[in-house]
Design a protein around this nucleic acid. Structure first.
Lengths: 197, 197
DNA sequence: ATATGGTTTAACCATTTGGTTAACAAAGAT
DNA sequence: ATCTTTGTTAACCAAATGGTTAAACCATAT
C-alpha cells in the first residue's frame, strides 16, 4: 500500500467518524502511521484531503444509484434492486450515509457545487417512468417524489441514524445487521404493495 | 430577553448549523450580540453550553414521542398521531433531527450517557402492544422493530437529509414543506395498509 | 562511488480558539 | 451616600491546530 493510500484510508476513517470540523490532521497521521508533514506533501491541505475522501464516498454511491434508476426494468424491479444493492453496499460502509448527510448539512455551498453537475444521483428518468406506469394503470396515482422519498427513507435512515436507532430499540450490532438483511426484501415488497393497483 | 436566553438562542442556531466541533464561541457571541466572556460567565464552558442546547433539543422530542407511544390508543392511531405531531413539530424545527443524529454520531459516549436513563424515547410498551395486536389478528405477523424502523424512517429521514433531498429531487423550500404536509397523513395510511390484516 | 530525484521526518511557525482576568458599570441593600 | 453583588467588557493567555521548512533518507541512473 502506497503512502498516499495509507493516508487516504486513515483520512476516510477519521473524517467519517468525526466530520470535517472535528477531524485533526495529527489524528489522521497517527491513524496512517506516518508523519503529519506527509499529509501536506501528498494532499496539500486539509480541505483538499477532505474533498478527495468526500468525492470518493459520493462517487461510490451515485453511479450505483443511477445505474439502477436508469436501467430498462420496471419500477417494481428497480425498487427491489435499489433496496437490495443499496443496503448490501451500506452494510459494508456503514458510516457513509451519515457522513455524506452531515457534511452536506454543515457545508451546503460546497455540497451544492458538485450536486449540480456530473454524476449526481438523478431521478428524472425514474420519475417520468413512474408517471407513465401510473397512466398505464400499473401503479396507483401517487406523487412520484413522495415515492422516491419513501424509498430513500426506508433504506437510508436506519444507517444514517444508526447509533440512535440501536440505542432506542435496544439492539446489538449483529441484531442490527440482521434487521438490515431482512429489510433488503421487506422494504421493497412493502412499498410495491402500497402502490400497485 | 435575558442575556442567558440570548446566548442560548444564539448557541442553538450556531450549534445546529455547524455542529459542536464546527461551532466557534466567538460566532455564538456575535450571533447573540454580546461579549465572548459572557458565554463563559453564564455557561462556564463550550461543552456545558452545548449540553444545555442538546438536552433542550432532545428534551423537546422525547416526551412528545413517549406520550404517544404510551397512551392507551390502538397501534394504528398511534402511528397516525406520531406521523402527524412529529412532522408538525419538526417543520417548525427543521434542524433538530440532523443535529441530534450528527452529535450522537460524533460523540457516541456522551449521547449514550443520557440515552440510558430518564426521559429517553422508550418503545417497549408500543412493541408489546404490537405483539398483542398481532396475536389478536389485528396486525399481520411482522417484526415490531421493523415496524418502528419504518415509522421513524419515513417521518424523520426527509428532515435529517433535507439538503440532499432538496437537491436530488430538485424542490424548493416551499415545495418541501408541502410534501411534508402531505406526508403527515400519507405515511400513516401507507404503513397501516401494509400491516393490517 | 556519487549525483539526482523523490520521499520522509523532526522541529518550527503563525493563527485560531477556548478560556481567564482585571477593571468597570449598574443596581440593590444598608 | 456607599457598600456589595451581579452583569459586562477589553485585553490577555496558553494550548491546539493547520501548515512550513530544512535536513536526512533512499532508491536509481550515471
Amino acid at each position: 500500500m502506497t503512502t498516499e493510500e495509507k493516508i487516504f484510508n486513515a483520512a476516510r476513517i477519521v473524517f467519517q467518524k468525526k466530520g470535517f470540523a472535528g477531524a485533526r490532521m495529527q489524528e489522521i497521521a497517527d491513524e496512517a502511521g506516518i508523519n503529519k508533514a506527509m499529509l501536506h506533501y501528498c494532499f496539500k491541505t486539509k480541505q483538499l484531503l477532505f474533498e478527495a475522501v468526500f468525492m470518493n464516498a459520493f462517487g461510490q454511491l451515485a453511479p450505483q444509484i443511477n445505474a439502477i434508476f436508469n436501467s430498462d426494468e420496471t419500477v417494481f424491479d428497480k425498487i427491489r434492486k435499489f433496496a437490495h444493492s443499496y443496503i448490501s453496499f451500506v452494510i459494508e460502509n456503514p458510516y457513509l450515509p451519515q457522513f455524506i448527510i452531515q457534511e452536506m448539512n454543515n457545508n451546503p455551498e460546497f455540497a451544492m457545487s458538485f450536486l449540480n453537475h456530473e454524476n449526481r444521483p438523478n431521478p428524472d428518468l425514474l420519475i417520468s417512468q413512474i408517471e407513465k406506469e401510473i397512466i398505464a394503470g400499473i401503479i396507483k396515482p401517487i406523487n412520484p417524489k413522495q415515492l422516491l422519498l419513501d424509498i430513500f427513507s426506508l433504506t437510508v435512515f436506519p444507517f444514517a441514524a444508526q447509533i440512535m436507532v440501536k440505542a432506542i430499540i435496544q439492539i446489538s450490532d449483529s441484531e442490527f445487521n440482521q434487521l438490515m438483511e431482512e429489510r433488503k426484501t421487506s422494504i421493497a415488497e412493502q412499498i410495491i404493495n402500497s402502490i400497485k393497483r
